[in-house]
Design a protein around this nucleic acid. Structure first.
Length: 228
DNA sequence: GTCCAGGGCCTAC
DNA sequence: GTAGGCCATGGA
């Protein structure tokens, strides 16, 4: 037996312990930023594969043009919509996705996200996933942050951070990761919102090019992208 | 100039 | 079912 195997293995932190560590480090995140459920849903589509700072500008432009309304978005000139959201990247695709989502909202819920809230989470998830341009993460962003449904949002940072800390297998798919959180963490809308916010903040600070690893609250390992 | 960011769709195999 | 290409801007 080699000598290293005699060493006592360090106990891995669980989901609750990691949440508490991050929460203590950052305090309340208040995630997701947005003045209304509709703005949150629009942000969820615009932030697909894009840095949030680029999305903020796009949302501000939509506000300036008074387009933050489903009826206005489907009626407005497509070029104006694309111009507003240009900073968020993939602006042609995203303009189409915004229009498709708004049409869904108008046809099914009279343009009001608040009217979605009375439906079950499984029903809503199925509906959202049937909309072209809305995948699992975007659907769950909308369900958790706009519809206040207790469903955990899994993103690239979640997989990266938790697999690096030995809690998840990198090969796990979206639903498997989500089930893990549902099973091992209290099912609570506020806690789910905060946990995802904490993961986003941790990801931004410690998963990018110049991570401040020595300051990372999850100091079990530095979370450096190139390690993956 | 190069890399990367909180995805999702489509096609080929 | 899954790997790879594509969509695009802006900051580091």
């Amino acid at each position: 037996m080699c000598s290293c195997s005699k060493k006592r293995r360090r106990k891995l932190p669980g989901l609750i312990e990691i949440y508490e560590t991050l929460s203590k480090f950052y305090g309340p995140t208040g995630w997701w930023p947005g003045d209304s459920p509709f703005e949150i849903a629009i942000g969820a589509i615009l932030t697909q594969n894009t840095a949030w700072t680029n999305v903020e500008k796009a949302i501000e432009n939509l506000k300036q043009e008074k387009l933050l309304d489903p009826y206005k978005i489907v009626q407005c000139d497509r070029e104006l919509l694309e111009k507003c959201i240009r900073s968020s990247g993939y602006f042609r695709q995203k303009a189409e996705r915004l229009v498709v989502f708004c049409n869904f909202l108008i046809e099914k819920y009279d343009g009001k996200i608040e009217d979605m809230m009375c439906k079950s989470v499984s029903y809503l998830r199925e509906e959202l996933l049937n909309i072209k341009g809305i995948g699992e993460e975007t659907a769950d962003d909308i369900l958790l942050y706009a519809c206040e449904k207790p469903i955990f949002v899994v993103d690239a940072y979640t997989k990266r951070i938790f697999s690096r800390h030995g809690l998840l297998d990198e090969k796990m798919n979206y639903r498997e990761v989500q089930e893990y959180f549902h099973k091992h963490f209290p099912k609570d809308v506020h806690l789910y919102k905060e946990y995802h916010g904490l993961i986003v903040w941790t990801g931004k600070d410690f998963c990018r090019k110049k991570p401040k690893c020595s300051e990372c609250p999850l100091n079990v390992y530095p979370i450096i992208k190139k390690d993956f």
